[in-house]
Design a protein around this nucleic acid. Structure first.
Lengths: 197, 197
DNA sequence: CGATTTTTTGAATCATATCAACGTACGTGG
DNA sequence: CCACGTACGTTGATATGATTCAAAAAATCG
């Protein structure tokens, strides 16, 4: 029984979920531990699972034409992470997912996912909302990248995701925000100065 | 009967679709004409339709904190456009959609959409793929914005979407690519020069 | 502890934005 | 059908935010 998972699913759905349904869902997941730097998904390979983090953290990234990493998404305890495109389409993924710490995750694979959607209507809805949310947050992020400068984006990110700022290395946050680590370091310095006054 | 729609749906699905199923789907859509600059969706209002363009063109955009427009998506004949987030969630939208020319579109509203998903399994799959594609192309776009310079992005955009370059005003393409119109003008000039040699 | 990774700092450079002006095209009413 | 106004595109000069290169300082890990 994972209280964290239940809470999070209910938050996503915006409604309470009967315990019987939740337990039916829980039966479809299995628990797994990963070392630091474990690879949960790899570019070019089909991503067969969705991961729910109970402990630890991970991030997904893409390699650009110069083989540089660009952080796409972060997951801490209570977050889902996957290459949803590859997972849903069954096509080779474009992203990599790696743990940042030793982690405990619940794994949902494609067959069980389909079983959950087919047999538990509320989970059909849940996963539709999951991809919607992913889509919306991407749209928002792109709009911000195109319209605000790096300092604005970092401030917004900090207030929206203080947990990420606490737990994710700064060079990955920089990458997520679309700036170089050196620039983020300078931005933070400037913010500290101005808030000190 | 819209041959264009049938072709496009089959392309998206990657499979042929029986004529009976297609006609059942077509019955759920209705055709409508719009003047230039018609508003198909508006920020703050629930977007109740998905639009398929038979003729004409449109674009969706978001307003940033400085009230500047940022193009999100374009639609020419053969393309779908909507505020999918608002459409699926039933929540107020964050985007605006406006025609660029007098247009003829097929309209699918939420009830008919749900009817299509419930009664025609292949359309359930179709719409799931539609949002997946939207999600994937956004991910790709964000990765590019964060990793490549404006000239690269424009060249890639031109080769990927020559139809957009032909039919969409340059200042909107600039906005879509996350640069100012003046900069795109200079980029094009530089490209013309280098290709002339 | 030593080794590696991450963060900071400085100086120079670069890409894109900004401001301002002018040219061009388009379509709308006279 | 032409003229006029508005929207769009181009160009130049300058400003600015962010990158790059290089190196040192700080933090983390085995």
């Amino acid at each position: 029984m994972s209280a964290l998972l239940k809470t999070r699913v209910e938050q996503t759905l915006g409604q309470a979920i009967p315990l019987t349904e939740f337990n039916a869902f829980l039966d479809l997941l299995y628990s797994k531990s990963f070392d630091k730097k474990s690879v949960l998904a790899e570019e070019g390979k089909v991503c067969k699972n969705i991961y729910f983090f109970q402990k630890g953290s991970a991030y997904s990234y893409i390699l650009d034409t110069k083989a540089e990493k660009h952080a796409i998404q972060f997951a801490l305890a209570g977050y889902w992470i996957s290459d949803l495109y590859s997972f849903f389409s069954g096509r080779p993924g474009k992203y990599n997912i790696e743990t940042l710490e030793p982690s405990e995750v619940l794994v949902l694979n494609k067959q069980q996912f389909e079983a959950a959607c087919d047999t538990i209507p509320v989970f059909n809805r849940f996963f539709r909302i999951l991809i919607q949310n992913a889509y919306v947050s991407l749209q928002f992020r792109l709009a911000r990248t195109n319209s605000e400068d790096a300092e604005f984006r970092y401030r917004e990110f900090s207030s929206l995701h203080p947990d990420f700022v606490q737990n994710i290395p700064q060079y990955l946050i920089a990458s997520y925000l679309g700036v170089k680590p050196q620039s983020l370091s300078r931005i933070r310095k400037a913010l500290l100065k101005s808030s000190a006054k």
